[in-house]
Amino acid sequence: MSALQLALATASLGGRPVLRDVNLTVAAGELVAVVGPNGAGKSSAIRALGGLLPLTGGHTRLDGADLSTLSPRERAARVAYLPQERRIAWNLPAVEIAALGAPFLAGAEATAAGRAALDELEVGYLADRGVAEMSGGERARVLLARALTTGARALLADEPIAGLDPDAQLMVLDRLKARARNGQAVLVSLHDLGLAARYADRVVVLDDGQVVADAAPLEALTPDVIARVFGLTARWVEGPEGPLLASSRYSDGGGGGVVRPVSSEL
């Protein structure tokens, strides 16, 4: 079984520890969601799995072998990475961006693969449009299409649905879930706990560079964990399409812990 794994990984950025003894695995056939507040280490964990963040301790392994022993090309053939950064330097058309996922294929084959990925994410109509004429959400989907074009068995996506409209968020997660069902190992970072619970096979909760929970969604995201990590009082309720999170926030205005609801239902 193919698996990508962080084993007791420790890393720092500018002297600040961002990962502390993190164990994290994503195996073929599963969709894993990494959640946590801002600065918890979600992006760092994903970058470490992609071989982009040097570890000061521990290992990144792919099918048991240390990732650093693989050549860039071998690594890219097995692991695709979608960064959070969405800036594209030039006004390239979508199909050419998607085709960059397959830099070793001949031009026509790469273009065909890129087009297929755009269609999969329902942005085939953007194929010939330049990025300057796209919305942020469209651009995000085109960049995800590039990561899908690679055909790698493991996919790491840092906030793939940030900035997408609700319909597109569900569509993208549906597609990623389908890819996991077809045998890919898919790991995404998400901010929306409700969507994480609904789509992920497993949820990893990170806080301050440490894994706080790693289990099936509702076992990982217990009211206690949500309270400690996110500062929310919350409970899961059964919705028509899966669990929904009813939550409220502790007031921090000196009121001594008065509960003030600011949002409910996701």
Partner: peptide, 9 residues
Amino acid sequence: SLGEETART
């Protein structure tokens, strides 16, 4: 064009 990290991976 797609940034440093995409190029590196």
